[in-house]
């Protein structure tokens, strides 16, 4: 909403004069680029006229301009609650909330993301994207059964979403619902036969099941990961998982080759360096193993220093 439209809209609304005065001050401050002063004045206007969505919208716009996206989403959301039929505002909140959620996820701010995602899903009960975001943050904060429910809702809303299906399978797996997860992945393989992520995620689950005594999973894990790579050779996690399987089977040359492919496709975390060191050690390449361990230590330190 531009400032001009904003003031025009104000004129059409019966407002306490003090609120209008605050809004005018906000407009003047915004025109001069004094964003903080503008925000303060709009907060005052919103306090004086709490039923008017325009002040909250304006405040949201200023906060967004300042890069304070979480606060902006909160203000736009408050405005939308006051003016639920405003389609333009609705679209803006929707898009900004999803962008902000992605930003919070990248920054590892999962609790803040969960708060945003909960509000967003309440506001957009028919949005598959909203429930996918909620599922993601519930998963990241270990509320795994609730995450599975959120992904289930996303999949109901958009049965064509392969991402929602993969998310559901992963959340079920983390929730200990491994039989349900296997069913989700199996159904996903039929519905999305060309989706490599389904095969990779299912492959990871099969590896875990194999560790705990599931013989059938042990037989299926490697072919599943290979089938993922047949569809998308750049899936670094699949290469890494294959490397681990090969290491466990005593195939150090095969493991090293898989781990090098994982590296070529961008996997640079501490896990990959550690597994590489183990493979090199088994090949008698001690100096290279030591170098890989040094890389492992550096990556580990960086990961531990990163925000959670």
């Amino acid at each position: 909403m531009t400032a001009g439209i904003f003031l025009l809209a104000l004129a059409l609304v019966a407002e306490p004069p003090a609120a209008i005065e605050s809004a005018k001050r906000a407009y003047a401050a915004a025109q001069a680029g004094r964003w903080e002063e503008a925000a303060t004045a709009l907060r005052e206007a919103a306090r004086l006229a709490p039923a008017n969505p325009l002040y909250r919208t304006g405040l949201g716009g200023i906060l967004e301009k300042q890069g304070r996206r979480e606060e902006a989403v909160a203000e736009f959301t408050a405005a939308l609650r006051l003016d639920p039929a405003n389609r333009q505002l609705r679209d803006r909140v929707g898009a900004l909330a999803l962008d902000t959620g992605a930003e919070l996820a990248r920054a590892g701010r999962f609790r803040a993301g969960l708060k945003l995602a909960r509000e967003h899903a309440a506001l957009f009960p028919d949005s598959p994207a909203a429930f996918q975001m909620l599922g993601l943050f519930l998963l990241r904060t270990h509320e795994n059964p609730a995450s599975a429910e959120a992904y289930q809702r996303a999949l109901q809303l958009d049965p064509d979403s392969a991402d929602a299906s993969v998310g559901l399978g992963i959340a079920q797996s983390e929730a200990g619902l491994t039989a349900e997860a296997a069913r989700t992945f199996t159904a996903g393989l039929q519905r999305f036969p060309r989706d490599a992520m389904h095969r990779q995620a299912y492959g990871v689950l099969l590896v875990k099941l194999a560790e705990t005594g599931d013989g059938e999973a042990a037989r299926q894990a490697r072919p599943m990961l290979l089938s993922a790579l047949a569809l998308n050779e750049s899936l670094a996690e699949s290469h890494y998982q294959l490397g681990l399987l090969e290491l466990a089977a005593g195939d150090a040359p095969g493991a090293l080759a898989s781990l090098e492919r994982a590296a070529r496709h961008g996997l640079d975390d501490s896990r990959r360096h550690y597994a590489t060191a183990r493979a090199l050690r088994r090949l008698g390449r001690q100096a290279e193993a030591e170098a890989a361990l040094a890389s492992f230590r550096r990556r580990k330190a960086a990961e531990e220093a990163a925000p959670r």
């Binding site: 681990l244 290491l247 466990a248 896990r271 550690y274 597994a275 183990r278 361990l293 492992f296 580990k300």
Partner: peptide, 13 residues
């Protein structure tokens, strides 16, 4: 422990 591979799990965790 690192050389003995008992410091971490097989994934370096």
């Amino acid at each position: 422990a690192l050389a003995a591979e008992v410091a971490y799990n097989p994934e370096g965790v």
